[in-house]
Design a protein around this nucleic acid. Structure first.
Length: 502
RNA sequence: UCCCCGAUAGCUCAAUCGGUAGAGCGAGCGGCUGUUAACCGCUAGGUUCUUGGUUCGAGUCCAAGUCGGGGAGCCA
């Protein structure tokens, strides 16, 4: 047996004989030649078994390998422009390790429910593979950024004894007979670590019991949270900006091919440069109420209605062609797929058309003091071609620990980062309240008990300094960079309301 | 919690006005010298989500439920 070579290393073995260990991704069989597209986790490689080149039993074996059969094969590596990876293998020997029949995920179309019920197998397919590879790079870029900028990793607890604010969004667990909660942030603990070590971060899973069924929500997701001592709002924005740019650069440098597999336009990512836009909440509110938001939505509405008319006509013609006489099989297949895609787009558009008037109403009637809603964020982000920081939200709609702005006591020194193209909030952060009195006053306003927070208040009693941080949602970031419609594809085994299998 | 949509073969979907449940893919067998979701022929494959109702007759109409999808709120 020759040494086992990974498919992504084949270029270094041209004209040599190698062994491949992998699975049958697809097979095409004719009387004199079998084409096996083999998958090994690093790529796809077409392996050619010629009837004249191998003993009859090997040819017969190759001709009857079901999709996802595992195998080892040996052959010579040839450069071939017709092959998907640029190289193909002319097989001289082949062993089936496990012969598979009835693999559930065929090369043709499947519905999303079916695919997620088979997520344990679907991970093998091209699209999930591309996404998981990009996710890996995003996480590596996150860790590298903080490790290279003097941040110390401090892991914060997942069991949180106190519900704090928003108890209804926490999962309760039984902790030796007492109620405990799965943490939805490590931030308070991280503040303690920041005052100990200066620059720190935590990175782990986080849990939200929100009953959200949207394309932006999971009940379990990964969040990275840096926290920085001796930092004010502007310092935090600068870090967040460099941070995002470094992630985007890494993805662009390593994943052109994967992005192409996903149909993502890389020019969207190439536009992500410093400086990002900076808006205050009040400026954002003005935009929402003003003519730019209204014009955008009116234009959206008109464009979508035109597109609906165009699609409806196209679908009608395609359905007529499909049911008409003398249509070739291949063309029928093509039409069927186009009709399905068209209908899905149509349903999406019709929902949007129903929602736009409501969004217009919400934006036009936006009152200072309310938090920005999902549709408001979409409007703001659609009016800009790069990410946008929205800062200085009204104090009432934000958490107790955020630093009140000395220049305008109605607002706090916080920020959200909105990704372009309606991907929504990918970062939320703030400078923290460092004055003991201000913090106590705010906690009293919210009727919060102080005992569980004595340790947190100690941070303001012993050497308090300006500090702050932010949290970045990994899955939303990956969805944005990959151009995915739904966040559930960005994690191997998504946990959603009503979906925990597998 | 609220609003909209859906459930038919293993998968993706058809089935006109309420009148015998179909196609492609997948599977099995056969054919084909290089295929790119290959192609061609044959075979097998159904409790039309559940319960109840209307009707001579229900995949189709009505009611309730279950599950799923999309959206609102909430959020990263």
């Amino acid at each position: 047996m020759h040494p086992v070579v990974q498919i992504d290393q084949l270029a270094g073995h041209a004209d040599q004989t190698v062994t491949l260990a992998g699975w049958v991704y697809n097979a095409r069989v004719s009387s004199k030649v079998v084409f096996l597209v083999v998958r090994d986790g690093t790529g796809l490689c077409q392996c050619v078994v010629g009837k004249a080149d191998v003993p009859p039993e090997i040819f017969d074996r190759a001709a009857h390998l079901g999709q996802e059969s595992s195998l080892r094969l040996t052959g010579s590596v040839h450069a071939d422009p017709r092959a998907p990876g640029g190289y193909e293998i002319h097989v001289s020997d082949l062993q089936a390790v496990h012969s598979t029949t009835d693999y559930p995920i065929s090369p043709k179309a499947h519905g999303i429910d079916f695919l997620f019920k088979h997520r344990h197998l679907w991970l093998r397919s091209r699209r999930p593979t591309a996404i998981m590879r990009i996710r890996h790079t995003v996480i590596d870029a996150i860790r590298r950024f903080f490790n290279d900028h003097g941040f110390l990793l401090v892991d914060t607890p997942i069991f949180a004894p106190s519900a704090g604010e928003g108890a209804q969004t926490l999962f309760e667990v039984d902790y030796f007979g007492d109620p405990m909660y799965l943490a939805q942030t490590g931030q308070l603990y991280l503040e303690s670590a920041a005052l100990a070590y200066g620059r720190v971060y935590c990175f782990g899973p986080t849990f939200r019991a929100e009953k959200s069924k949207t394309r932006r929500h999971l009940t379990e997701f990964w969040m990275v949270e840096p926290e920085i001592a001796w930092a004010e709002l502007d310092d935090l924005l600068a870090v967040a900006e460099d941070f995002i740019v470094s992630i985007v650069e890494r993805v662009l440098a390593n994943h052109r091919e994967d992005l192409e597999t996903l149909g993502q336009d890389v020019s969207c990512l190439e536009r992500i440069r410093k400086p990002f836009y900076r808006l205050t909440y009040s400026e954002a509110a003005e935009i929402l109420r003003g003519p730019r938001a209204r014009d955008l939505l009116e234009k959206d509405l008109a464009e979508r209605q035109a597109r609906i008319a165009e699609l409806t006509a196209r679908l009608e013609a395609q359905e007529k062609e499909r049911s008409g006489p003398g249509v070739k099989k291949h063309r029928q297949d093509q039409l069927a797929q186009e009709i399905l895609d068209g209908r899905e787009e149509l349903a999406d558009l019709e929902e949007q058309v129903r929602n736009i008037p409501l969004h217009m109403q919400l934006a036009a009637g936006f009152e200072w003091g309310k938090d920005l809603g999902g549709s408001d964020e979409t409007i703001i982000s659609r009016l800009h071609d790069r990410p946008i920081f929205v800062t200085h939200y009204p104090r009432e709609c934000k958490a107790f620990y955020m630093k009140r702005d000395p220049a305008d006591p109605r607002v706090v020194r916080n920020f959200d980062l909105l990704a372009p193209d309606g991907y929504g909030e990918i970062i939320g952060g703030s400078q923290r309240e460092d004055s003991l009195d201000a913090l106590l006053e705010r906690m009293a306003m919210e009727n919060m008990p102080t005992e569980p927070y004595e340790w947190y208040l100690d941070l303001r009693r012993y050497g308090s300094v300006p500090h702050g941080g932010f949290g970045l949602g990994v899955e939303r970031t990956v969805a944005w960079l990959c151009g995915l419609k739904h966040i559930r594809e960005t994690i191997a085994f998504p946990r959603l309301m009503g979906r925990v299998y597998p």
